[in-house]
Each structure stands twice: as C-alpha cells, then as structure tokens.
Amino acid sequence: MSRLESMRRRLTAQIDGINWAAERIADMDGDVLEMGLGNGRTYDHLRQELPDRRIWVIDRMLKCHPSCVPPEADFLEGEAEPMLTRLAQEGRRMVMAHYDFGYGIKDKDVEEGARLSPRIAAVMVPGGLILSQQPLVGFEQICGPDTIAPDRYLFYRRV
C-alpha cells in the first residue's frame, strides 16, 4: 500500500470513527478532548459533529490552519503530561477523546501512548470513548465501526 493510500485510510478512519463515537456519546455528559491539533482537520470535524460540546485541545504548539484555531480558553499549549494533569486538577471530565500524538517512530509513539494512558484515564468519564492511532493501556479495547480495519484505528472505553 502506498503512503498516499495509507493516508486516505487514516482520514477515512478518523471521519468514520468520530461520527461513530459522536452517536454513542449523544446522551452522556462531558467535554471532548483533541490530543494533537496538527493542522486542525480532525478538530474541525469534531466541531462540526459535536457543535454543542466544549472541545479542549492539547498540542505542543499552535500551527494549524487559520480556520481551525480553537478558542484561546480551550487550547492548552505545551507537553501533554502537564496539560492532562491540569485538566484533571481542574475537574474537567471528557466523554470522548481523540488521541493523535505521534513522532512517526513506532517504538517512541507506543511508549508515549502507554506513558500518557493513566493521565488520559484521569480525565475520562466512566464509559467515555477514546479513538487512537496508537495503542493505549488500561482501557477496554472495543470494536469501532465496521468500515475501519481493526489495525487502522483503535477504539477504547474508560471502564
């Protein structure tokens, strides 16, 4: 599979996954967390699909497309660990999270996901859903939409 085909698979998985999760959290209370803003495509889709939810965003720096800049009060700039700790200390509760951090080096990405998992769990409501490109630990792995290959995107529930 070419890198271009792989990218198309990833983007389709993100769209289908966000839409799937948005339906499942419709009757649950809590905010949404985007971990890794990048150029803002998934954040923009989250805004479209969950217009009545507060969407928190964590990223090392703001470098997204101008149309995708989150409100200043919802953007936490810096390393993920202190930002997740801050959200937990403030009592923020997430019903859905999208994990899109990564260095592009598999071993490093897997290690970071495992290290951040307890901090992510600390802000998730019981039953909250997490969509991730990377494996996370300490959550119940669940099946996502049938349109996504099991190895393309991972879906978790906070028990």
Rank of each mutant, 00 (worst) to 15 (best):
103 Y>G: 05
18 I>V: 15
92 R>N: 00
126 P>C: 01
116 L>I: 09
40 G>Y: 07
132 S>E: 04
3 R>V: 06
10 R>D: 12
74 D>L: 14
75 F>Q: 04
114 A>V: 10
111 E>C: 03
4 L>N: 07
72 E>H: 07
19 N>E: 15
118 P>A: 08
111 E>I: 08
101 F>C: 03
43 Y>T: 01
91 G>L: 13
132 S>T: 02
158 R>N: 14
157 R>C: 09
135 P>C: 06
39 N>A: 07
9 R>G: 01
1 M>G: 09
68 C>D: 10
77 E>K: 08
4 L>Q: 13
149 A>W: 04
93 R>L: 11
152 R>C: 15
23 E>C: 06
137 V>L: 11
23 E>T: 05
56 W>D: 04
127 G>Q: 05
159 V>Y: 08
45 H>F: 13
111 E>S: 09
153 Y>G: 02
41 R>V: 09
64 C>F: 01
84 L>I: 10
105 I>R: 13
131 L>G: 08
26 A>I: 01
64 C>I: 01
81 E>F: 08
52 D>I: 00
98 H>Y: 15
30 G>E: 06
73 A>F: 01
144 G>T: 07
132 S>Q: 05
76 L>Y: 14
24 R>S: 06
130 I>Q: 02
104 G>E: 05
83 M>Y: 01
10 R>Q: 13
116 L>H: 04
108 K>C: 11
16 D>V: 05
37 L>N: 03
40 G>K: 06
101 F>A: 15
39 N>L: 14
10 R>H: 12
27 D>Q: 14
51 P>R: 07
127 G>V: 05
45 H>I: 04
100 D>V: 01
7 M>L: 14
2 S>M: 02
112 E>W: 00
17 G>L: 11
50 L>D: 09
43 Y>Q: 05
15 I>N: 09
52 D>S: 12
143 C>A: 15
11 L>N: 08
17 G>T: 02
21 A>K: 04
7 M>N: 05
125 V>Y: 00
93 R>P: 04
88 A>G: 11
113 G>S: 09
133 Q>H: 14
97 A>V: 05
138 G>K: 09
65 H>I: 00
48 Q>H: 11
31 D>E: 14
54 R>N: 10
85 T>S: 13
155 F>N: 02
68 C>I: 00
81 E>T: 11
58 I>H: 03
98 H>T: 06
11 L>K: 01
138 G>I: 06
13 A>M: 07
18 I>G: 01
150 P>L: 08
46 L>V: 02
118 P>T: 02
50 L>M: 13
56 W>A: 00
104 G>L: 12
94 M>D: 03
106 K>I: 10
111 E>R: 14
76 L>I: 04
69 V>M: 10
86 R>C: 05
75 F>S: 07
30 G>M: 11
6 S>C: 08
20 W>N: 03
105 I>S: 10
91 G>S: 08
56 W>H: 10
93 R>W: 05
15 I>E: 14
140 E>Q: 14
79 E>P: 00
3 R>H: 10
132 S>L: 04
137 V>F: 00
14 Q>W: 06
5 E>Q: 12
114 A>C: 06
127 G>D: 08
59 D>E: 10
27 D>L: 12
126 P>F: 09
75 F>W: 10
16 D>Y: 07
149 A>T: 03
77 E>R: 13
49 E>T: 13
20 W>H: 10
